[in-house]
Design a protein around this nucleic acid. Sequence first.
RNA 1: GCCGACGUGGCUCAGGGGUAGAGCAGCGCACUCGUAAUGCGCAGGUCGUCGGUUCAAAUCCGACCGUCGGCUCCA
Length: 641
Amino acid sequence: MINITLKDGSVRRYESGTSLLEMAFDISPRLAKETLVAKVNGRLVDLNTKLNGDAEVEFLTFDSEEGREAFRHSASHVMAQAVQRLFPGTKLAIGPAIADGFYYDFDSPHKFTPEEMEKIETEMNKIIKEDLPFTRVELSRDEALKNFGNRQEQYKVELVEDLPGDVVISCYRQGDFEDLCAGPHVPSTGRLKAVKLLNLAGAYWRGDERNKMLQRIYGTAFPKKAHLEEHLHRLEEAKRRDHRKLGVELDLFSIQEEGPGFPFFHPKGMILRNELLNFWREEHKKRGYDEISTPVILNRVLWERSGHWDHYRENMYYTKIDETDYAVKPMNCPGGMLVYKGRLHSYRELPIRMAELGLVHRHELSGTLHGLMRVRCFTQDDAHIYMLPSQIRDEIIGVIDLVDYFYKKFGFEYHVELSTKPEKAMGSDEIWEQATNALQEALESKGMAYKINAGDGAFYGPKIDFHLKDCLGRTWQCGTIQLDFQMPELFDLTYVGEDNQKHRPVMIHRVVFGSIERFIGILTEHFAGAFPAWLAPVQVKVMPITDRQLEYAEKVFRELDALGIRAELDARNEKVNYKIREAQAQKIPYMLVIGDREAAAGTVAVRHRGRGDLGAVELGRFTDEIVKEIKDRENSLACEH
RNA sequence: GCCGACGUGGCUCAGGGGUAGAGCAGCGCACUCGUAAUGCGCAGGUCGUCGGUUCAAAUCCGACCGUCGGCUCCA
């Protein structure tokens, strides 16, 4: 007999050789039905694993991350099986579980069409109905190579060849399908219940553009049909929050064929943008930043000196002025350096925090453009901090705190990554290590969780990146802090120290919003267009019910306007219902309905876009409250619209 | 840039070899109305661009441009 300790600490005794699934069934038939994989002494395994000794066991259902992953991963195997049944000769690349589903990359002479996704789905449902057990087979490297070689699965052969020497090589079979896989998997295909294939895309083998482009099919899977429906419904909802759609509906911005990736901001978008910048300027002034502005076009010599000419060439735009080469700035730093160099600096001045709302242009690949999120020109809320080596830690922490303050203000959740030295980099390994350590120490002293993003630093230094989510859960880098020992060297930046000698300052590049454009995109999706009053392009809509109240409504409007409230008067000869509907669609925070009663009493009937009819109040009371709400930059809830 | 799909009035979409259709928005008229669409009328499109096939192309074919979903890249 063996002793099995469960998650709750209870101990059960089973005969040696009992499988996990049998144990789950013994605990409760329902658990046996819902559990997908198990953790034995902390290691993930299949449920048909038989135990021969004492162990700590945790059963994992779809509610756990590991359970979901095994579930979706199993679905990807079923999809691969379906594809190979329907399209013999299709080669398998990789097929992992991802955040909300799974994908599989295929290499096939046949080009899959969207219509065929349904066929594949039907075949998958057949396989699910067949309820084929997933069985694990461990094999030696040679056996694995021979096996996949015989099946002409060259991608699998390549994967096996690259596996480290000490790893156990395993395959999973269901029916006549076999795939190289570490596992674990759910017990059988019948567990999958609800699968849906979502889209079709190209993807390079191993993510390298020099490799062959494969065909990737994305899908998702749930243990219950209702959950799948719910998920698909959520995706539909998310589309309604898409900033590209809301950008048109709310008339914030547009992108024209004449300038792909170069957004146009409309009057309402500019109000939003300027409010963000007002907030930004106030907060930066408080924190000791000065603001500068540097030119968009600068001489080639500058870009050669900064390293951009060598390391960033393919992302830049060029022009000639009087037979001399110039480039459009892709970054603000070189211009900023020139301002610093303009005069001598004493150690007493440091740190110098020099901010710039700089418009940069970058040649991004056409296929990557995406609304305001990825564009070819954008405004960075940049700043360069020049400092003594002894000030590095505090300055980095100061920026981390600033970013945190900004994101919390809008109610954003974010995650942090530390990006290290890329292949194409300037400077010695020692300097990179020193800079990377400084960033790491700052993160650790703040107790922040972060993920290492190896090889993703800027060419001149490592960086801390702050990532925000869009409506579909895709993440976008916004804030970043980059520690740079290169530029001060290249530009021969100095300060005069206590010893009256020249010394090299260290510098930080940092942005908080990242790109104003991208931030507005994220903000739009976060609030689903229902911006808090301080950001809303129109804050109040005044709507007389008939033209009898027009005179009083105009008076109300003038009063709001005089207080600096962004108000509009809807004097059109339309029903209130119609006016309200339109104002709601425009997500205007406050509507003031003005009828005979209000005109007589000097009140306004307040309707809030999220809270509905709030009843009549004295005009003065309403203005006092909204003025305070705007001044304090109060955040309404994102769910309100 | 690469793979795939798509491109019809301001927006959402129908049509699909014989020279364009709806709803919403816009404009005009009537209705004077109490918390998400009043009715009637009018106007608006060389069907992304260029080329080809055809007696005839929005429709079929090709190239290009743009958009969307990914890959790659990045704020």
